[in-house]
Design a binder for these strands. Structure first.
Length: 760
RNA sequence: GAGUCUAUAGCUCAGUUGGUUAGAGCGCUUCGUUGACAUCGAAGAGGUCAGAGGUUCGAGUCCUCUUAGACUCACCA
């Protein structure tokens, strides 16, 4: 054996495992029946973005590898199913940044071309991600790898949409949504980051009132002004139409009374802009107010803003304020006003509340069973505190906007007849690559359907537009062949929410035709993921799982901790504080990195990755190597006639009994800790046992003994290797193979060996 | 506004159901080792376990309050 452990052999060991078939469980002929007897263990990997290079968060998949390796050693048929996500908006965002560097934008391309470009971009990076997961030693079944845009996966997702539609759970509506004018798409509530910012609160004259607003530029969209019904100051105005002096000339609004108004805030008067404020939108429904859109999807003021049309929101605000000041309409400005601004979680531009037609999923029927599953314990949480968060969220859930106005992702399978829906607005590049943006009725005689389809960027269909969810080449009603597919794509989570089903081969259209994998492994055993996608993903998977199969997609949700940098900040590419795990494996070996990610970590608490810690674990890995080397040297020196693992209990001295006793204890505690997800404790105990008890005490003592010590030495060593294998698979396997070879033991891989049992 | 979490050695953190002198890594001090160990070993300094009160034979561990910080959710102009 070499003087020190050399981690450069890891690749070969991985090949050894891979070629042995240990990663690929076999599914028996009668999976449903065999399942009860076999007790299969399965984990679906939280699919990383296919184009995303590895970061420490991915390295935490180590937790899953520990679980999987442990259960495999217990003899359970074990599946860890890997995958890659096309990651809708995330990927398109990254790609658009790349385009920007080249001086281009998404508007230079039709959607098919853009889609193909992004596809190629992702393909380049997808292999890298897989390579990196192999580097970290993850014992995933690569034969079952899935990519979220595989035709089979997508088809099933579309089938789910159809089923939801047929069950009456899909509808289109024009409500106020969180719209990012920079990304050009609407988002769900979860995708908006609210940031405390210091802004300005403008007090302006407004008919007989003075009112405070942060958004003077939206006054062109005002359709009412509201006061509190209990406010004696203003009660006399309620119900009146009042005339407001406007920058584009006078206009009238209605005075309404509504509890939403806080008498103590500002002057107790609020202007109501239903088109650009969620509260005002709600109020407009209560009071039947008209909606005026003064900001367009491009982030610029519309014609309704009169002379301000065409300005960006910020430009318009500046100009409006200046003009009002000039005309004495501004009373005062509070420039230290602290409020919360919604920002796009991707690009961090300000989110504009906008009224836009979107596709929605009625969520009540899906959420109810998903809530019940958590309450009844059918779905378990670890740590348990997340159960409460999950239930609270589920009980307050709202209908889900599943449409996104981006190209990167499966298009919603709905087809419109243009001749039946002449008010559909089309945005496309004509054959000369000029952008055309107009209603179909205005251009129907100028462009062929082929030209429109070929250059298509997006369409906006009124909410009452007729559509069909079956693909067709002619309209069933008017027989027109001018058919166009919805350009909205699905929210990424709509697809990944079905991931456990799709990857295991569940067939939505005909569940009886689902694959044997599904019958054998569903519901999966554990879903281990970062807690910050509990709502985004875990909740959605649970809803889809129960809706489609009647069963939860996983029995236990294990939420793990977040890796932070030295300042306690979450590592992210945008912050530039990412520590590359692959650099660490190069420097210290994969085992050292893996061990440092779980050693002494409390369940689901944040922790800091430091190089010191990784170095310390590298020393531990090396200690194991050298202890093994020393055991070998001791045995060589004694030159015994026969090497055996059989312990003769009659010949044991106190030191032997002591170490065997402690070995039994560590077997029990490690097993228990792994069963209860106490990886930190398990790894720490093993570290202490091996270093202190075995190396410092027992081996030191064995230096002066004869060959009768050999069986105990080897037994404790090999058992330790087994216990440590889930945590540090490479060094343990390498030593194990060396020992087998040298002492002619039965040939087997440690990965496939059996988990130690307490002998007492 | 509602909820959750954290507060333990100089630093980063363990301490699962309350039970003997509170632990690890790194750092620090002294000594010893260069034929297992990128060193390793032995010994050691260092903590009123945020503060106050309570339950208990016994609390870092359970309860209440206080203080400080982090996060999640929520429609405040």
């Amino acid at each position: 054996m070499d003087k020190a452990y050399n981690s450069s052999q890891e690749g070969q060991i991985y090949e050894l495992w891979l070629n042995s078939g240990a990663f690929t469980p076999k599914v028996p002929a009668d999976p449903k029946k065999a399942k009860l007897k076999d007790n299969p263990y399965s984990i679906i990997l939280p699919l990383p973005n296919a184009n995303d290079p590895m970061h420490m968060g991915h390295a935490l998949f180590t937790i899953q590898d520990i679980l999987v390796r442990y259960h495999r050693m217990l003899g359970q048929p074990t599946l860890w199913l890997p995958g890659g996500d096309h990651a809708g908006i995330e990927t398109q965002f990254v790609f658009e940044k790349k385009l920007q560097k080249e001086g281009k934008s998404r508007f230079d391309f039709d959607r098919q071309t853009l889609y193909q470009m992004i596809w190629d971009f992702v393909e380049e990076n997808r292999k890298l991600n897989q390579f990196q997961m192999k580097k970290l030693g993850f014992s995933m079944d690569w034969t079952r790898y899935h990519y979220s845009l595989e035709p089979k996966i997508v088809d099933n997702v579309l089938a789910t949409f159809k089923k939801l539609y047929n069950d009456g759970l899909v509808y289109r509506d024009e409500k106020i949504v969180n719209y990012c004018t920079h990304c050009g798409t609407a988002f769900s509530n979860l995708e908006v980051d609210y940031v405390d910012e210091i802004g300005k609160l403008y007090y302006m004259k407004y008919g007989p009132f003075i009112l405070a607003t942060t958004r003077p530029e939206t006054k062109f969209g005002d359709t009412a002004v509201a006061v509190n019904p209990k406010d004696k100051r203003y009660i006399k105005y309620v119900g009146q139409e009042i005339t407001i002096e406007g920058l584009n000339g006078p206009f009238t609004v209605k005075v309404i009374a509504d509890d939403m108004v806080d008498m103590k805030f500002g002057t107790g008067v609020v202007k109501i802009t239903p088109g650009h404020d969620p509260n005002d939108f709600e109020a407009s429904i209560r009071h039947h107010l008209p909606i005026k859109k003064v900001i367009g999807f491009d982030g610029r003021m519309t014609e309704l803003a009169g002379k301000y049309a065409g300005l960006t929101v910020n430009q318009a605000r500046e100009k409006v304020v200046a003009d009002m000041q000039e005309r004495g309409m501004l009373v005062k400005i509070d420039d230290q006003y602290q409020h919360r601004i919604g920002r796009c979680y991707r690009c961090h531009h300000v989110i504009e509340p906008m009224v836009a037609p979107q596709w929605y999923l009625k969520i009540d029927k899906l959420a109810k069973p998903a809530t019940e599953a958590a309450k009844s314990g059918q779905l378990k949480f670890f740590p348990t505190r997340f159960k409460k968060a999950y239930i609270t969220w589920m009980e307050n859930i709202r209908d889900w906007n599943i449409s996104r106005q981006i190209v990167w992702g499966p298009r919603i399978p709905a087809w419109y007849c243009l001749d039946c829906n002449p008010d559909i607005k089309l945005n496309f590049l004509d054959k000369n690559k000029n952008i055309i943006s107009d209603f179909y009725k205005n251009i129907k005689n100028k462009y062929s359907i082929d030209e429109i389809n070929n250059g298509l960027q997006s369409l906006v269909a009124p909410t009452d537009a007729a559509f069909t969810v079956e693909k067709t080449d002619h309209c069933p009603k008017c027989k027109s062949k001018n058919i166009i597919q919805e350009t909205d794509t699905f929210d990424t989570w709509f697809l990944s929410g079905q991931w456990p089903l799709s990857t295991l081969g569940f067939n939505t259209t005909d569940p009886s035709k689902s694959s044997p994998d599904f019958d054998y492994f569903y519901p999966t055993t554990v879903m281990d993921t970062l807690w910050d996608i509990l709502f985004f993903w875990v909740a959605r998977m649970t809803m889809f799982g129960l809706y489609l199969t009647g069963d939860v997609p996983f029995k236990t949700v294990h939420l793990h901790s977040k890796v932070t940098d030295a300042k306690g900040q979450k590592m992210s590419k945008s912050k530039g504080n990412v520590v590359n795990p692959l650099d660490m494996t190069e420097k210290y070996g994969t085992d050292a990195l893996r061990m440092s990610l779980v050693y002494g970590i409390a369940p689901a608490s944040d922790f800091v990755v430091s190089e010191d810690k990784i170095r310390a674990q590298r020393n531990f890995v090396n200690k194991i190597w050298n202890a093994s080397r020393f055991v070998e040297m001791l045995i060589d020196r004694l030159n015994p006639s026969k090497i055996s693992l059989d312990i003769d209990k009659l010949k044991l001295i106190d030191a032997d009994k002591d170490i065997l006793n402690k070995l039994n204890k560590i077997i029990s505690s490690t097993t228990k800790n792994l069963e209860t997800y106490h990886f930190g404790q398990a790894s720490e105990d093993l570290y202490q046992f091996f270093w202190k008890e075995f190396c410092d005490l027992y081996i030191e003592n064995a230096k002066d003994r004869g060959e009768e010590a050999i069986p105990v030495l080897l037994t404790v060593l090999i058992t330790s290797l087994k216990l440590l294998h889930p945590f540090i698979p490479f060094v343990t396997e390498e030593i194990y193979q060396y020992l087998i070879e040298k002492y002619n033991f039965k040939k087997e891989l440690l990965i496939s060996s059996s988990w130690p049992k307490n002998e007492n």
